[in-house]
Write a protein that binds this DNA or RNA. Structure first.
Lengths: 211, 211
DNA sequence: ATTATTTACGTACTTTGTACGCAAAGTATA
DNA sequence: TATACTTTGCGTACAAAGTACGTAAATAAT
C-alpha cells in the first residue's frame, strides 16, 4: 500500500552553482498551506519508502531532476514549524550545475525556478533556516566528502576542481597547495589519462574518490 | 491535546561511565512488539512537544533520569526498522555517571539496568546500530562540545578532566599537552579558586564553557 | 628541614599547512 | 626551427599546530 505518512516530510535544498553565482531551487506551491508561495521542493514520505528514496522521488516529481548526489543534513522538528499539524522534516541537500538539468514543474508544483541565494526573501515555514543549515553543512563537508560530484565531470583536471573550490568558497587558494591537499587527503585519484586539445600543457585527469 | 504521533519515535542512547567501564542504559520492554526484551529507552512524541522535550520526558518516564545534557545525533528511517508499522526514530545521546542517578522503571519499562557496552548482545530493531553511531559521535565531539558535562562537577581541576579523556578514549594523553589544548581551544575557563584539602599542591578549578 | 607528590610552566622537536620559485610540456608566433 | 607564452606540477623555505619531555613551584607527610 502506498499510503503517506502525515507527520514526516522531506525537504530538499538544491543549490545551483555557475559563474560564481549560488542559486537555490524553489517551487511555487500548488496546494495549501502557503498556496502559491515559493518554497523548497519537499513533501511526504510513503509508508514503504526509505528517506533517501523519498527525497529523490519528490525531487523528480516536483522539479524533474534526477540522478543527484543527495546528502542528509538534519531534522527540523519544532512544534510550530508547520501550521496545519505537527510535521517534522528531514532535510537533504545537493549542489548541481543548473544548466545540466531541465526543470519540469510537476505534482504539486506550479513552477520551478532558480533563485539567487544572496538576498533571498522570507520563505514559508522554516525554509530559510534550512537553507542556512544546508549551506554551512556543504561548506564544512567540501573537504571531506565528494559533495562537488554533481559539479564535476567523471574525469577532470585538478585545475577545474581548484576553480570550483575557489568560487564556491569565495576565496583564493594557492593552486600548488590545493593540489597537495586534495591528493594527500585522498579526495581524488589520478588516472592514466591526460587532457588533450587544451590550450597548453596537457594535465592529468583525476576522479573523485567515494570513500 | 496530547495525542501521540504514531510514526515518529525518539531513542536515547545513555552511556554510563565509571572506572573506565562504559555501560549503556537499557530498559526491559513492557509492551509489544519485542515485549520483555531489553532495548534503548525510547517512545513516541506528543503532538505539541518538541523533539528535545520528548527525549527528556521519555527518559524521565522510563528510567527516572532527569537533568541530563542530551544531544541529537541522527535519524533512523529504514522502512523495515520497526515491524508493526513505519516509524522513523530520532536518536539522542548522553554520557553520565551511573552512580549519580537513581533508576526507577516506569511507564512501559519493567526494569532499567546498566549493561556493559563491550560484548553487548543483539538488541531489537536497529538499536545496536544506534549505539555504534552514538558512540562514534561522542568520540568525535568530545574535543568540540561539552559532552562530558554530566561526568564532571560544576568546577573541577584539569587533571580530573584529563583522566576522563584518557579512560574514555582508551589512550594516554600527555598531561601537559592536554592542558594546553583544552585551554587554547577554549573548551574550559579557569576560575579564581583552587582545590583545598587535596593531597598535594592545590590546583586551579576550571569550568566547561558552553559555547 | 627534607622528601614525596602533584601542579603548571617552558623548551625542543615533528608534523602539517602556507607562500612562493621554477622547470617541464605543451601551443602560438616569428 | 627557434623563441615566446601559457599552464602544469614538482620542490623548497617558512609558519603554525601538535607532540615529547624537562623542571620548578606548591603543598602534605615525615
Amino acid at each position: 500500500m502506498n499510503e503517506i505518512l502525515p507527520n514526516i516530510s522531506i525537504d530538499n535544498a538544491i543549490f545551483g552553482f555557475a559563474n560564481g553565482e549560488l542559486k537555490i531551487l524553489l517551487i511555487k506551491r500548488d496546494k495549501q498551506p502557503e498556496f502559491d508561495r515559493w518554497s523548497l521542493p519537499g513533501g511526504y514520505v510513503y509508508c514503504n519508502e526509505n528517506m533517501d528514496d523519498a527525497s529523490r522521488r519528490l525531487l523528480q516529481e516536483l522539479t524533474g531532476m534526477s540522478n543527484l548526489f543527495l546528502s542528509r543534513v538534519d531534522v527540523f522538528g519544532d512544534t510550530d514549524r508547520y501550521p496545519d499539524r505537527r510535521v517534522i522534516s528531514v532535510l537533504y541537500c545537493a549542489l548541481v550545475k543548473p544548466e545540466q538539468f531541465e526543470l519540469l514543474a510537476g505534482a504539486h508544483a506550479k513552477k520551478v525556478k532558480w533563485f539567487k541565494v544572496k538576498g533571498i526573501k522570507k520563505l514559508p515555514f522554516d525554509h530559510n533556516e534550512m537553507i542556512d543549515t544546508a549551506l554551512s553543512w556543504l561548506r564544512d563537508e567540501i573537504w571531506r566528502k565528494p559533495v562537488l560530484i554533481n559539479l564535476l565531470p567523471e574525469k577532470f583536471p585538478l585545475n577545474q576542481m581548484h576553480d570550483l573550490f575557489q568560487t564556491f568558497l569565495h576565496e583564493t587558494i594557492d593552486n600548488r597547495n590545493f593540489r597537495k591537499k586534495v591528493i594527500s587527503q585522498e579526495l581524488v585519484e589520478r588516472l592514466n589519462e591526460k587532457t588533450k586539445g587544451g590550450k597548453q600543457r596537457p594535465a592529468y585527469l583525476y576522479r573523485l574518490k567515494r570513500k
